[in-house]
């Protein structure tokens, strides 16, 4: 494992190719890897399948890639906060697969944990259950949901070190930890970059072995300014 994974945004983006499946952390712009998404905007990559809880928030996030025609399919839980994603779907420009939020998180976690899938009660009796195997365990019925894996994952963390150890902040954690594990090549943008050991080992949320490349976050691509509260 290389001990210094810090690369330029361009170098990190060179690992993403047209036709790939890309998983993205974040939820309604909380913890969205906006630096990496903007990096992807500047490439020629297209025909992507993207896995993300939401399409972003209003005009920020994955919706920006959708508007550029780079996304063929979006696997998500909620696209209602990005009207342009809904519009692309209705126009037939974008395929959308909607998945319950907890199921999506567990599919990504399972994909990274070497599991084929898991059993959940979520979605029983709804369209989500159609054409899925129903399995009874101890008298209770569950759906078999299969794991998800991606070629590349894009995540954002508040703190990271040069090994790729990551620590998230507040509700910006959300899908980033499961996203970091579910692919072959995880790229992390970090707001604050530390030397190994500066983040206490007990405080590491995503161990560096999952992360292949670390990019300094462009703080321009963040929500409103931090407060003292």
């Amino acid at each position: 494992m290389p001990k210094n994974k810090v690369v330029s945004l361009e170098e990190a983006m060179s690992h993403i190719e047209s036709g790939m499946t890309v998983a993205v952390g974040g939820f309604l712009s909380q913890g969205d890897p906006l630096t990496l998404i903007h990096g992807l905007k500047d490439t020629d990559v297209k025909d992507l399948t993207m896995i993300s809880c939401t399409g972003g928030f209003r005009d920020r996030g994955i919706v920006e890639l959708v508007k550029l025609g780079k996304v063929r399919k979006l696997i998500a839980s909620h696209i209602g906060t990005t009207p342009d994603v809904v519009k692309a779907y209705h126009a037939g420009e974008l395929e959308v697969e909607l998945i319950p939020q907890g199921t999506l998180a567990e599919q990504m976690r399972s994909g990274g944990a070497g599991l084929g899938g898991f059993l959940t009660p979520t979605g029983l009796g709804t369209v989500v259950a159609e054409n899925k195997q129903h399995i009874e365990v101890n008298g209770r019925t569950y759906l078999l949901e299969k794991a998800l894996r991606a070629d590349v994952s894009l995540v954002r963390a508040h703190d990271g070190d040069t090994w790729g150890n990551l620590r998230y902040r507040g509700t910006a954690s959300n899908y980033n930890p499961v996203c970091a594990v579910c692919s072959d090549y995880t790229i992390a943008e970090v707001e604050y970059l530390y030397s190994p050991g500066e983040i206490a080992p007990e405080s590491v949320h995503t161990p560096g072995l999952y992360v292949k490349a670390v990019v300094r976050a462009d703080l321009h691509y963040r929500g409103s300014s931090l407060s003292a509260c």
Partner: peptide, 27 residues
Amino acid sequence: DPDRGNAGGAPITLIAGGSYFDSATSF
């Protein structure tokens, strides 16, 4: 604070003793 929001995207605070966690844990 953009790192402290609820499921609707609105800003939140936590009471003393509250905690944050990832989506797999939450669900």
